[in-house]
Write a protein that binds this DNA or RNA. Structure first.
Lengths: 334, 334
DNA sequence: TTGAAAGCGCTACCAT
DNA sequence: ATGGTAGCGCTTTCAA
């Protein structure tokens, strides 16, 4: 039903090959023929069938982007950055949501591989050594760039921020603002969560503060866990006077719990998040946070991946570490 | 390099057809052969090449989802709902960001059509009659379901809320809370923006309030425009004592402007948004809004589309209108 | 400058 | 129950 090259070729009494060459700006075509072909292509509104083309070229111009949660606007922003770079180059992006589940993630990646994607952008929920996912990717020889989360022991390209630095910046800021009982609501046991935790610990010990383990609570990455964790922290005696949260959604949830308990932010308890998602400025108390230049992460990752995809010979993995930046707002302004 | 059916066939001394049948659970294969095949498939980690399969079946199991802005978490939530329904059925979703630009949107859709997507989910930025986009889609015989925004004059399946009702609910709520000078920060000139505006007007006239045109300001859909628009509203004499905003991001921006001007929400000025995005509860003043069951919209749209895609014979377009629900929080609590 | 032939990896159809 | 043949729409190679 849709127009094929064959149809145009028949109309014009030329071969299919000629059409194909014109459409790909092949040089060895006479100007007259080229013009006739282009004319007819426009008349019929012909569009090449990418499935057929992909089968022979082995290039789909599809990039797979796997994120743990699109609702977390950090990842939406990364996705936007990725799209901004990839679209003008003719690529489409398939976005898969792993829901922070490594099993689901593996299935999604397998599907993407079966679809012959040209490359993979992965904010992985895998714990190290948890699966053979990366071996599969390796086998398929599909280039990968890790985003936001690194996987230890794997020599893959990576774009993200220095997470230890994130933890350091946030925690030292709290210390500098006079907090002395600083809690941390941790993230998952992946590079970001562990790195920020390490930064938190280092900041405390660097300033001679004790790391009280009861002040470190496991959460995961949503605002409801921030809320729950904060309620438990408030029940401690003495409660903390500052908290560094894994990310902004967690911090938003935590802040809600603090205010609900009748305490003031930042006077009674200062709060810092991480990620600088765009609504942080609009929260009950505008949230101090550590900016990760999310859309830049997406753009850099896309660039790195394009380089891998389009270079003929294998290239060494590269790492781009962006410097986190502290953004001070009211939630620590005391 | 990757394993093909041909390889397995050779190993096992059977034909490619046999492999193909086993993998698709075709009935007419002997249990012994089936077992041998499955065994070898597992050993080699074989995965069917979807590109090749698609070329012959004319089904890609890819659905295109076009949204104006992924960063607006309403659409991220819709996308999540869509994915939740489609993934278990073996579909992948290509998400395209049109950035509220109808030109860009048309290009994206064309690319998706060239990719032979099985169906299209479209939150369109097209103004009526603006382009031949829908004719192209029609030609390709690719099923479409419109999301959130309808296009007048087109008989296409649609899932969304009754936008006039959204405007009515929000505005009547403000009236009921004692507001008398009610402003509206409008959205773009598409069904959602126009519908909500109509609801706003109807609510006012129903209660004998004058619709002062200077109280209706054009915005588009982001928080920065909400902020700007609100500053202009506050400069009026008398300023409004209530405002209904096109959506939650606009409302968040508006609220920021109000508070910055030293006024109180809701005492001096009550604010209502629309969309009930998940962080609305966490804003400076928790935001009253009209819920649109965003992820349900995504799920229903996916269902409708699947029905269109998988039914042999053409089906009539269907419309699913979800009832908007008022969510009262502090921003109107007076 | 043009095109005939082969083939990408798979499935549909029809024999056996 | 199994497989040979043809073909999906395109590109690649090579000959004319």
């Amino acid at each position: 039903m849709p127009v094929r090259m064959k149809d145009i070729a028949r109309d014009l009494n030329v071969s299919v090959v000629t059409i194909s060459k014109v459409l790909r700006n092949h040089s060895d075509i006479g100007p007259a023929t080229r013009k006739r072909v282009l004319q007819r292509v426009k008349e019929l509104g012909y569009q090449p069938n990418w499935v057929a083309r992909s089968l022979v070229t082995r290039r789909t111009y599809i990039i797979g982007l796997v994120v743990p949660d699109l609702m977390h606007s950090f990842f939406a922003e990364v996705a936007k950055g990725v799209g901004r770079k990839l679209r003008p180059r003719g690529y489409n992006v398939v976005i898969s949501n792993s829901e922070e589940d490594s099993q689901l993630e593996a299935e999604e990646v397998n599907l993407l591989l079966a679809r012959q994607v040209d490359g993979l952008l992965l904010a992985s929920a895998q714990k190290p050594g948890q699966s053979d996912l990366f071996e599969r990717i390796e086998e398929h020889k599909v280039p990968v760039v890790l985003i936001d989360r690194r996987i230890s022991g794997l020599d893959l390209s990576y774009v993200g921020v220095d997470d230890k630095q994130v933890g350091l910046l946030a925690t030292e800021h709290l210390i500098e603002r006079g907090c002395r009982r600083i809690a941390h609501i941790r993230g998952p046991q992946i590079s970001t969560g562990l790195g920020r935790l390490a930064g938190y610990r280092q900041a405390l010990s660097r300033h001679g503060l004790r790391v009280a383990s009861r002040y470190v609570l496991a959460g995961d990455s949503g605002d409801s866990t921030g809320y729950e964790a904060m309620r438990r922290l408030l029940a401690l005696d003495p409660p903390p006077d500052g908290v560094f949260c894994y990310n902004d959604p967690v911090a938003a949830g935590a802040m809600k719990a603090v205010l609900e308990a009748g305490l003031r932010v930042p006077e009674d308890l200062a709060v810092v998040g991480a990620g600088n998602v765009h609504y942080s400025d609009l929260l009950r108390v505008p949230l101090s946070t550590v900016d990760q230049s999310s859309s830049l992460i997406g753009e850099h990752a896309a660039d790195l991946l394009l380089d891998l995809v389009e270079s003929k010979r294998p290239r060494r993995p590269r790492t781009i570490l962006l410097a986190p930046k502290l953004v001070v707002r009211d939630s620590t302004n005391r």
